[in-house]
């Protein structure tokens, strides 16, 4: 499903973010990506959604080599990958409904289908009652749920989450984890970069640790392994 071979990424300013990264993630897995700040987690995520191009190496998602993608094909890749960010990245002027519907309008879904799918996905994240709310009226946890809802409404095979609990209090963080686990149980592969040692150590999953742009540890059911 996701394969990286000898991937290097050097930024124009000379910083080497990834330095020969090898990873393989199978369909349906739930993977934590951990590591100190600046280890290369964010670069890793940006490479997967082709926000960045690797300087060297091979990245395959669903069998497609991202290096071969033209700029025009990038949107179609992104429609197959849901992404959730620490800062939610919601349209602040739009309603909850409109935020999620946008992802469906992009793929030119039929209007009746949009309505059904948005309400379904709001049901999954438990915010059906807030469809007409403006996103600015929501709490942090609710915003993250909406971001998750938007990320999965197209039923992507992969959900990438960059510090999804980073801005949330512990209780809310746990409820978000519950939602993610439920999505994973439906068959979606989840790759989650996190600094939350408590979650990693409690909700045991495969842990990939990155340091200095390389994988230094990869164990199923592993622990966080850093000072919180």
């Amino acid at each position: 499903m996701i394969t990286m071979k000898r991937v290097r990424k050097t930024y124009p300013n000379g910083v080497q973010a990834l330095n020969g990264m090898n990873i393989h993630i199978d369909k349906g897995e739930f993977v934590y990506v951990v590591g100190p700040s600046g280890a290369g987690k964010t670069t890793f995520i940006k490479l997967m959604i082709r926000e960045l191009k690797p300087s060297e190496g091979l990245i395959q998602i669903n069998g497609n080599n991202l290096g071969d993608l033209s700029d025009k094909q990038i949107p179609y890749l992104r429609r197959k990958i849901g992404v959730v960010f620490q800062d939610f990245k919601l349209f602040t002027k739009l309603s909850v409904y409109e935020n999620i519907a946008f992802a469906l309008e992009v793929i030119e879904e039929e209007p009746e289908q949009i309505k059904t799918k948005v309400m379904d996905v709001l049901d999954i994240v438990g915010l059906k009652s807030k469809a007409r709310f403006n996103t600015s009226e929501l709490s942090g946890g609710e915003k993250q749920r909406i971001a998750i809802a938007r990320a999965i409404v197209n039923q992507p095979a992969i959900l990438i989450a960059d510090e999804p609990t980073g801005n949330l209090d512990p209780e809310t963080a746990w409820s978000i984890m519950g939602t993610l686990e439920e999505i994973n149980n439906r068959g979606t592969t989840i790759v989650m970069a996190t600094h939350n040692s408590h979650i990693v150590n409690t909700l045991k999953k495969r842990v990939i640790a990155i340091e200095n742009g390389k994988v230094v540890r990869d164990e199923v059911g592993g622990s966080y392994g850093y000072q919180a």
Binding site: I49, K72, P75, Y76, R78, A103, I107
Partner: peptide, 16 residues
């Protein structure tokens, strides 16, 4: 700017 960035991340084409 942010709005446009989000659109692109969700998979919108440039013309969209």
């Amino acid at each position: 700017k942010d709005e446009i960035q989000i659109m692109k991340l969700v998979g919108a084409t440039n013309s969209f």
